[in-house]
């Protein structure tokens, strides 16, 4: 080995160790959020867009989520609600067991609904998330791309975040005894893939986008079209946006 090669290899080795150590430090501080070789979490800011007028209530998204994320029975990371408005003061809301995992039974014909629609729901990945605020040990955290995650190795399972989420998106995992919720399929999006629910939707009612990408259609819609969020009165700044949301939806 030439002296130059030796120095090169040595420097490389030292650098690898340093980077490796930094990686471990990162993992300790913020979980193992930064993944992939070319992926840079500073370069992304994700948002989710749901178009109510397109959803047909097939609940493929619920099934896709369950399979992709191994969601335990009796809990959901995403679900689809059905609203039928019978008259000005009569709204019926329902959701089949397991968030609609096995689909909806059709409405009885002639029930007189003046309008009916489906509302897919999931973690809103709020910018000012109450769940992250209340976590006593910092197990709930934001990644740089704006995704709210749970560090299952740090969570003590107190359930305070479950109580603090106004949207009912969190639950305590019945086997792991830690808080669990939608991650926007973080393991997929950091590889450049879409979340499972987005891919499963046959109507394109669920869209996932990157606000830092100037050509992103979700970014364009959010900038140019009126959009709503759930419970805007709570000022949690949800990053899950809705098109054609009805006043009955909370």
């Amino acid at each position: 080995m030439k002296r130059r090669d030796f120095v090169k290899t040595g420097l490389g080795g030292v650098l690898t160790i340093l980077i490796g150590k930094a990686g471990i430090a990162h993992a300790l501080v913020g979980g193992d959020a930064k993944t992939g070789d070319t992926y840079d979490w500073e370069q992304h800011e994700y948002a989710y867009l749901i178009d109510i007028s397109k959803c047909i209530g097939c609940t493929m998204c619920v099934r896709a989520c369950k399979r992709e994320n191994n969601v335990p029975d009796n809990f959901v990371r995403t679900w689809v609600e059905r609203y039928h408005v019978l008259d000005f003061d009569q709204t019926i809301v329902d959701c089949p067991p397991n968030g609609g995992l096995n689909g909806y039974k059709p409405l009885v014909e002639g029930n007189g609904a003046s309008k009916a629609f489906f509302v897919p729901k999931m973690c809103n990945h709020c910018k000012k998330s109450p769940c992250e605020q209340v976590c006593p040990v910092g197990a709930a955290y934001h990644t740089k791309e704006g995704v709210v995650l749970v560090d299952p190795k740090r969570c003590i399972g107190c359930g305070y975040c479950v109580q603090a989420c106004p949207y009912g998106c969190r639950f305590l995992h019945p086997v792991d005894h830690v808080a669990s919720k939608c991650t926007w399929c973080y393991h997929r999006i950091t590889k450049g893939l879409k979340p499972a629910c987005v891919l499963a939707c046959p109507r394109g009612a669920r869209l996932f986008g990157d606000l830092k990408d100037p050509n992103d259609p979700v970014r364009k819609t959010l900038l140019e079209t009126p959009v709503q969020v759930l419970r805007p009165d709570l000022l949690t700044e949800p990053q899950c946006f809705y098109l054609h949301l009805d006043k009955e939806v909370r």
């Binding site: 009796n74 809990f75 959901v76 679900w79 609600e81 003061d89 009569q90 709204t91 019926i92 809301v93 329902d94 959701c95 067991p97 397991n98 968030g99 729901k121 359930g159 479950v162 109580q163 949207y167 009912g168 998106c169 969190r170 639950f171 305590l172």
Partner: peptide, 16 residues
């Protein structure tokens, strides 16, 4: 305001 009871799917049991 006639509302048929609807609880979020994760809101079935008492946690605390």
């Amino acid at each position: 305001h006639e509302i048929l009871g609807y609880a979020f799917p994760n809101d079935v049991h008492i946690l605390w």
